[in-house]
């Protein structure tokens, strides 16, 4: 048999995956299925979200976190989304229901895939495990299987208990915001991980935005902290969850969340001039994340960073 000796002579380099946000966002195509990580008002990969809006990406199926936030609302309002899969879209006291989401759902401008937190987790889990489906008991007897024909009631063959069979949900990308990452795609959260580990497992490719880039040795100091290994893309994004919080780094920018919510209420009430003014001011006319940060009032970020210890 042919079994050639190995040598270091032609050894390739270890693959580095660090790239700019525009280059990264360009990897996501019209019609892709995209999981967006984070939770509520925390840990969203905003430079990529804004880049997708600027690029006018269309017909995405977006899968939110178990509690998705206004980052999905923003994508819906900007016209990027064909179908949305999330058990909740909103920001609690800031916005009980995402306003763009609400308008789009009420007017059939977006397809809503009715689900629950753990039906969704079961579907992502099935994808991550390479299984066709998983059983879950939540949603049995509710309107869920009526509204979503993907959920198939069955009785388990061992105890005869009623369950729903939920199909694996495959995604092209998971975009996850982490605290730090190395150039090889190892990412570590700075606080709670919420559902991000499972979200990243379920997708075929993973894109990280990271508050900071660190040497590989820094990652190896605490491998138990690594949430995602071998991501396909890493984007350096300091303050990259703004206006939302990044666990371990800074808190929510409530004023700017309020500014977004006001714009989204305008969208819902069809005051498109006000909505478009918001998009232009913070997204369309801001070429990149660096410029976005420059546009913020001086001292604003420092305040949000300091508030984490207050």
């Amino acid at each position: 048999m042919k079994l050639d000796p190995i040598t270091r002579a032609n050894r390739p380099k270890r693959k580095e995956v660090l790239m700019g946000e525009e280059e990264a966002a360009a990897l996501i195509k019209d019609g892709d299925v995209v999981i967006v990580g984070g939770f509520g008002t925390v840990n969203h990969p905003m430079p990529i979200i804004r880049a997708l809006i600027r690029r006018r990406v269309r017909n995405l199926t977006v899968i939110g976190a178990a509690t998705a936030g206004l980052e999905l609302d923003m994508l819906i309002g900007a016209g990027c989304v064909k179908k949305v899969i999330a058990p909740y879209i909103g920001a609690e006291l800031h916005a009980p229901v995402g306003n763009c989401f609400r308008y789009a759902a009420e007017n059939d401008e977006v397809e809503v895939y009715e689900t629950t937190e753990y039906l969704l987790y079961s579907q992502l889990d099935a994808a991550a495990r390479g299984l066709g489906f998983l059983p879950w008991r939540g949603g049995v007897g509710t309107s869920l299987p009526e509204l979503n024909k993907d959920y198939v009631p069955f009785n388990d063959p061992i105890n005869g208990e009623p369950y729903l069979a939920v199909p694996a949900l495959h995604a092209d990308w998971a975009i996850i915001h982490v605290g730090q990452a190395d150039v090889y795609g190892n990412g570590q959260h700075g606080g709670a991980r919420f559902g991000d580990r499972l979200l990243s497992r379920a997708a075929e490719r993973v894109m990280l935005t990271a508050e900071r880039i660190v040497p590989n040795a820094e990652i190896r100091k605490d491998p138990f902290k690594t949430s995602v290994a071998y991501a396909d893309v890493v984007v350096e994004a300091p303050y990259g969850s703004h206006p939302f919080a990044s666990h371990g780094f800074y808190v929510e920018d409530e004023d700017m969340i309020a500014e977004y919510v006001a714009a989204s209420v305008a969208y819902r009430k069809r005051d498109m001039a006000a909505w478009n003014a918001y998009l232009d001011r913070w997204i369309n006319n801001v070429p990149n994340h660096q410029e976005y940060l420059k546009k913020l009032d001086a001292g604003r970020i420092a305040h949000l960073v300091n508030a984490i210890h207050a």
Partner: peptide, 10 residues
């Protein structure tokens, strides 16, 4: 072991 699943199943 749980997440050795092949992408796309069979």
């Amino acid at each position: 072991f749980m997440y050795f699943g092949a992408p796309g199943g069979r």
